[in-house]
Amino acid sequence: MGTTLKLVLLLTAAVACGGCSLWRGAAPSDEPVDGPVPAVIDPQLDRRDIIRPAVDTEDWEVGAFVGLLSVEDFGTEPVYGLRVAFHATEDVFLEGRYARASVSDTSFRRIGAPLFEREEEDLTAYDLSVGLMVLPGEVFLGTRWARTSGVYVNFGVGRVEFADRDSISYVLGFGLKVLPTDWLSLRLEARDTIFDSDLLGENEWKHNFEITLGFGVFF
């Protein structure tokens, strides 16, 4: 065939193909479709029922303690008290404490300088503190007895009332807590109560150290 004929045939084929692509069937209308639209994707959602078990939670701990309190400038006296703790997380608990001791000024009386009106005066200390369990673990007694334990530190703020004077106090302490059963705790605690007092004339910061042994019941 001649080149002209080939060119014409080629051109016709090109136009026909191009034209075919231009010519489409009726475009899909944009009007809304009647009836439910079949879902393209059908997600398999796991809609199980939810149960919320009601379990007895025991975050509160109530306990008592006894120990020895060393009152600065006086002697060492027995101290006893109560405490209530709220365990917010496994690491942090908030504790309120009330402690009493009876302090005597016999040393001052002996040298002829009595400080108190009567020989014994009451010391009352109460405080709110935050405790942090820092070393959880277990303690072992012999070969058969193992119980969960933890070492904690606590610090807080409170008030000391002593010999008709009161003062704000700051508390720092640490202790060992052992749980012989799940609901009972035994605590050996050492703490320093820092407060200011002017019993001896001048306003000074006093440190009252104490060591106490106590128990607590979780409920």
């Binding site: 078990p53 379990v55 007895d56 939670t57 025991e58 975050d59 365990h87 917010a88 997380t89 496994e90 690491d91 369990m133 070393l135 959880p136 673990g137 277990e138 969960t148 933890g150 749980l179 799940d182 979780f218």
Partner: peptide, 30 residues
């Protein structure tokens, strides 16, 4: 052994075994 992440794992409950909840403390359940 205790209600805290510092306590050791001492037992494993396998798949399809059952357990019941006794009590709870903070985020842990006995």
């Amino acid at each position: 052994t205790g209600p805290g992440r510092g306590y050791p794992v001492f037992y494993i409950v396998e798949r399809s075994q059952t357990f019941t909840l006794l009590r709870g403390r903070t985020d842990w359940y006995l």
